[in-house]
Write a protein that binds this DNA or RNA. Structure first.
Lengths: 199, 199
DNA sequence: GCCCTATATATCAACCCGATATAGGATGGG
DNA sequence: CCCATCCTATATCGGGTTGATATATAGGGC
């Protein structure tokens, strides 16, 4: 499942430009998948070459000329096949959690700032989902899948929010002052790192 | 925040080989950050060149010879600086949610299989966190940050689990049979795609 | 003996991300 | 009326990541 497939999927909802696709991904998929121009435009170029989408150039009435992409029958079939084949992975890459893991190496002010910023970002994402949900254009109430993923996002984000608010205090209990003897540990005394699954 | 910084962070806990680091990331960071050999070994090579870590080769008693990496004072300082500088991002890339979004294009059997598989994976990750938490080696009870991130992971995973179990039924209500007229939509009737944030 | 697993390092193509360049039209404040 | 700024729209590039693969040895199970 790469950006090419994402584009095919988005185009099942109707023709669109690369720019439209980016906005669509930001609105609907912002909490589960990301794709920037650096992925979208190459993807569309390849899809056109593979005849999975067709492009027609429209002289822009507002702004530059645009390329409107359309899903071909082959493209639709390819997308359905891809839906059958992709493993349902779910990966998280969180600088935030890494920072929290090393909270004992952070100054208290920085720690609080990071937590507050993350809470604000969660609220922003929740607002985005709400905006998307209440923007059912022309009565068409979004697919059940779209509603499911929105609800999923809200459930997870809310859980994160609650957890942070309830537990952030444990991060600055006791060892606020970092044990700052300047790492004069003799090489021989350093024990090798132990992972959870031991040898 | 790239894999190089992750390696520095992991080495604050003690010397380790590239292989150790991979295992460490899998155990502690599996629910918030990923790093494979393809990132770790180049990262360690660069860090050695920058004198942020030092390496010494140990003839392996069990298996091939290993390179044990050690955090230098410069490396520790660089890591602390990096902790100050990194934006606390939190990104999700979920093939699972994409599949759910297009649930109306999936056969019911496939849909159920995907949901069941994801539930199993959630349980697996929860078990991993529990294993890590109860493996406090030699009484050292893990840092408050480590405990915080474990709790965070559990809260989020549990919320996802509950949501799926409570809401999966809405995905196969009514429109189980996909509207399968074979996409003979005239080009002119196709409305361009509308994102939530409209022009 | 043979297979599988674990230890351990390393590389490579394909792909993705973020930043940047370009440019015309709309908007709006001074 | 003009300039700054934003929005639309496409495109590219370097640096970084992913996932698969190759290599080699030791040990356990059957």
């Amino acid at each position: 499942m790469d950006v090419k497939d994402l584009c095919l999927g988005a185009l099942t909802y109707g023709d669109a430009t690369g720019y439209d696709l980016k906005k669509f991904f930001e609105s609907t998929f912002s909490h589960c998948f990301l794709a920037g121009y650096g992925s979208i435009y190459p993807a569309l170029a390849e899809l056109t070459e593979e005849k999975l989408v067709s492009a027609r150039t429209v002289p822009g009435q507002a702004g530059p000329s645009k390329k409107l992409y359309h899903l071909t029958d082959a493209g639709r079939k390819a997308f359905l096949a891809q839906l059958e084949a992709t493993e349902p992975q779910h990966k998280v890459k969180s600088e935030f959690l890494v920072l929290m893991h090393f909270a004992h190496l952070l100054p208290t002010a920085r720690l609080d700032a990071v937590l507050d910023q993350h809470l604000k970002e969660i609220e922003h994402k929740l607002a985005m989902i709400d905006a998307y949900e209440s923007s059912d254009q022309a009565g068409k109430p979004a697919s059940s899948g779209a509603r499911f993923t929105c609800g999923f996002g809200k459930a997870v984000l809310t859980a994160a929010q609650d957890y942070i608010q309830a537990q952030r205090h444990v991060l600055k209990k006791g060892d606020t002052r970092v044990n700052n003897r300047s790492t004069k540990i003799t090489r021989s005394r350093v024990k090798p790192l132990q992972a959870a699954s031991r040898n």
